[in-house]
Protein backbone atom coordinates (compact mmCIF):
# COMPACT_ATOMS: atom_id res chain seq x y z
CA UNK A 1 0.00 0.00 0.00
CA UNK A 2 1.25 3.43 -0.90
CA UNK A 3 -0.18 6.58 0.57
CA UNK A 4 -1.39 7.69 -2.81
CA UNK A 5 -3.69 4.76 -3.21
CA UNK A 6 -4.96 5.00 0.36
CA UNK A 7 -5.76 8.68 0.09
CA UNK A 8 -9.12 8.22 -1.69
CA UNK A 9 -10.23 5.86 1.07
CA UNK A 10 -9.28 8.33 3.78
CA UNK A 11 -11.10 11.18 2.06
CA UNK A 12 -14.15 9.00 1.63
CA UNK A 13 -14.10 8.10 5.33
CA UNK A 14 -14.21 11.81 6.19
CA UNK A 15 -17.12 12.26 3.80
CA UNK A 16 -18.99 9.29 5.23
CA UNK A 17 -18.67 10.67 8.76
CA UNK A 18 -19.94 14.06 7.60
CA UNK A 19 -22.87 12.44 5.84
CA UNK A 20 -23.62 10.42 8.94
CA UNK A 21 -23.67 13.54 11.07
CA UNK A 22 -25.68 15.25 8.34
CA UNK A 23 -28.40 12.65 8.66
CA UNK A 24 -29.02 13.73 12.21
CA UNK A 25 -29.38 17.36 11.23
CA UNK A 26 -32.23 19.03 9.49
CA UNK A 27 -31.22 21.47 6.76
CA UNK A 28 -34.66 23.06 6.96
CA UNK A 29 -34.01 24.27 10.51
CA UNK A 30 -33.20 27.78 9.53
CA UNK A 31 -32.60 30.25 12.33
CA UNK A 32 -34.69 33.35 12.05
CA UNK A 33 -32.88 36.62 11.78
CA UNK A 34 -35.54 38.12 14.00
CA UNK A 35 -34.98 35.90 17.02
CA UNK A 36 -34.60 38.09 20.11
CA UNK A 37 -35.67 41.13 18.12
CA UNK A 38 -38.77 43.22 18.63
CA UNK A 39 -41.79 42.37 16.50
CA UNK A 40 -42.27 44.88 13.69
CA UNK A 41 -44.67 47.74 14.27
CA UNK A 42 -48.06 47.01 12.81
CA UNK A 43 -51.78 47.31 13.41
CA UNK A 44 -54.11 45.11 11.41
CA UNK A 45 -57.89 44.85 11.24
CA UNK A 46 -59.50 41.55 12.29
CA UNK A 47 -60.83 38.90 9.93
CA UNK A 48 -64.45 39.91 9.08
CA UNK A 49 -66.87 38.70 11.70
CA UNK A 50 -64.33 38.86 14.50
CA UNK A 51 -64.01 41.64 17.02
CA UNK A 52 -60.32 41.95 17.85
CA UNK A 53 -57.64 42.99 15.41
CA UNK A 54 -53.93 42.39 15.93
CA UNK A 55 -51.32 45.06 16.54
CA UNK A 56 -47.79 45.07 17.85
CA UNK A 57 -49.07 46.69 21.04
CA UNK A 58 -51.15 43.56 21.73
CA UNK A 59 -47.92 41.57 21.96
CA UNK A 60 -46.42 43.84 24.60
CA UNK A 61 -48.98 43.40 27.37
CA UNK A 62 -46.71 41.35 29.57
CA UNK A 63 -48.13 37.98 28.52
CA UNK A 64 -46.33 35.40 26.38
CA UNK A 65 -48.32 34.74 23.20
CA UNK A 66 -48.23 32.69 20.02
CA UNK A 67 -48.65 34.28 16.61
CA UNK A 68 -49.64 31.77 13.98
CA UNK A 69 -49.34 32.76 10.33
CA UNK A 70 -52.03 31.05 8.29
CA UNK A 71 -53.99 31.34 5.05
CA UNK A 72 -57.05 29.68 3.61
CA UNK A 73 -55.04 28.62 0.57
CA UNK A 74 -52.43 26.88 2.66
CA UNK A 75 -52.84 23.12 2.74
CA UNK A 76 -50.33 22.54 5.51
CA UNK A 77 -52.31 24.94 7.71
CA UNK A 78 -55.17 22.46 7.62
CA UNK A 79 -52.78 19.85 8.93
CA UNK A 80 -51.83 21.78 12.05
CA UNK A 81 -55.29 23.24 12.58
CA UNK A 82 -56.69 20.54 14.94
CA UNK A 83 -53.66 21.03 17.14
CA UNK A 84 -54.25 24.77 17.30
CA UNK A 85 -57.90 24.12 18.20
CA UNK A 86 -56.74 21.85 20.98
CA UNK A 87 -54.27 24.47 22.18
CA UNK A 88 -57.03 27.08 22.26
CA UNK A 89 -59.37 24.73 24.11
CA UNK A 90 -56.78 24.08 26.81
CA UNK A 91 -56.12 27.85 27.09
CA UNK A 92 -52.42 27.26 27.62
CA UNK A 93 -51.36 30.44 25.89
CA UNK A 94 -53.04 33.29 24.01
CA UNK A 95 -53.02 32.37 20.31
CA UNK A 96 -53.26 35.03 17.63
CA UNK A 97 -53.66 34.52 13.90
CA UNK A 98 -52.07 36.42 11.06
CA UNK A 99 -54.00 35.80 7.84
CA UNK A 100 -51.19 36.10 5.35
CA UNK A 101 -51.84 37.12 1.72
CA UNK A 102 -55.40 35.93 1.90
CA UNK A 103 -58.72 37.49 0.86
CA UNK A 104 -60.46 38.47 4.14
CA UNK A 105 -63.68 36.72 3.10
CA UNK A 106 -61.78 33.51 2.43
CA UNK A 107 -60.07 33.65 5.82
CA UNK A 108 -63.43 34.19 7.49
CA UNK A 109 -65.01 31.29 5.63
CA UNK A 110 -62.02 29.11 6.49
CA UNK A 111 -62.30 29.89 10.19
CA UNK A 112 -66.06 29.31 10.08
CA UNK A 113 -65.60 25.98 8.43
CA UNK A 114 -62.74 24.51 10.43
CA UNK A 115 -63.08 26.33 13.71
CA UNK A 116 -61.51 29.48 15.11
CA UNK A 117 -58.70 28.97 17.62
CA UNK A 118 -57.55 32.60 17.62
CA UNK A 119 -58.05 35.27 20.24
CA UNK A 120 -57.03 38.07 17.93
CA UNK A 121 -56.60 38.01 14.19
CA UNK A 122 -54.92 40.35 11.78
CA UNK A 123 -55.68 40.58 8.08
CA UNK A 124 -52.39 40.95 6.24
CA UNK A 125 -53.90 41.23 2.79
CA UNK A 126 -50.74 42.07 0.83
CA UNK A 127 -48.31 40.32 3.14
CA UNK A 128 -46.49 43.46 4.26
CA UNK A 129 -46.46 42.53 7.93
CA UNK A 130 -45.63 38.92 7.16
CA UNK A 131 -42.57 40.06 5.25
CA UNK A 132 -41.52 42.25 8.19
CA UNK A 133 -41.84 39.19 10.38
CA UNK A 134 -39.54 37.30 8.01
CA UNK A 135 -42.25 34.87 6.90
CA UNK A 136 -41.31 32.89 3.87
CA UNK A 137 -43.58 29.92 4.11
CA UNK A 138 -47.00 29.38 5.60
CA UNK A 139 -47.68 28.17 8.22
CA UNK A 140 -45.20 29.68 10.62
CA UNK A 141 -45.60 30.17 14.31
CA UNK A 142 -43.85 32.74 16.48
CA UNK A 143 -43.49 32.73 20.24
CA UNK A 144 -43.50 36.34 21.47
CA UNK A 145 -42.66 37.21 25.05
CA UNK A 146 -44.65 39.80 26.99
CA UNK A 147 -42.36 42.62 25.85
CA UNK A 148 -42.95 42.07 22.13
CA UNK A 149 -39.75 40.15 21.56
CA UNK A 150 -39.74 37.13 19.22
CA UNK A 151 -38.16 34.30 21.19
CA UNK A 152 -38.88 31.33 18.93
CA UNK A 153 -40.02 30.63 15.44
CA UNK A 154 -41.40 27.40 14.04
CA UNK A 155 -41.51 26.87 10.27
CA UNK A 156 -44.09 24.56 8.75
CA UNK A 157 -47.06 22.83 10.31
CA UNK A 158 -46.79 22.13 14.03
CA UNK A 159 -46.83 18.45 14.90
CA UNK A 160 -47.70 17.22 18.41
CA UNK A 161 -44.02 16.44 18.82
CA UNK A 162 -42.96 19.95 17.83
CA UNK A 163 -45.45 21.32 20.31
CA UNK A 164 -44.18 19.23 23.20
CA UNK A 165 -40.47 19.39 22.43
CA UNK A 166 -40.02 22.91 21.08
CA UNK A 167 -42.92 25.29 21.36
CA UNK A 168 -44.13 24.60 24.91
CA UNK A 169 -40.55 24.68 26.27
CA UNK A 170 -39.99 27.99 24.44
CA UNK A 171 -43.12 29.38 26.09
CA UNK A 172 -42.00 28.13 29.48
CA UNK A 173 -38.58 29.75 29.05
CA UNK A 174 -40.15 33.01 27.96
CA UNK A 175 -42.41 33.01 31.00
CA UNK A 176 -39.53 32.23 33.30
CA UNK A 177 -37.30 35.04 32.12
Amino acid sequence: MRWRTVLPLVLFAVLAVALGVGLTLNPRDIPSALIDKQVPDFALPPVPGKALGLASADLKNGEVALVNVFASWCVACRAEHPLLMELARRRTVPLHGLAYKDAPADSARWLAEWGDPYERTGVDRVGRVGIDFGVYGVPETFVVDGQGRIVFKHIGPITPRDLESKILPAIATARGS
Binding site: M1, R2, T5, V6, P8, L9, F12, A13, A16
Partner: peptide, 12 residues
Protein backbone atom coordinates in the same frame (compact mmCIF):
# COMPACT_ATOMS: atom_id res chain seq x y z
CA UNK B 1 -15.48 2.13 1.17
CA UNK B 2 -15.06 -1.50 0.14
CA UNK B 3 -14.01 -0.68 -3.39
CA UNK B 4 -11.56 2.01 -2.29
CA UNK B 5 -10.05 -0.40 0.22
CA UNK B 6 -9.61 -2.92 -2.57
CA UNK B 7 -8.08 -0.13 -4.63
CA UNK B 8 -5.68 0.83 -1.85
CA UNK B 9 -4.49 -2.77 -1.60
CA UNK B 10 -4.37 -3.79 -5.24
CA UNK B 11 -3.70 -0.65 -7.24
CA UNK B 12 0.08 -0.54 -6.52
Amino acid sequence: GGSLTLYAIRAP
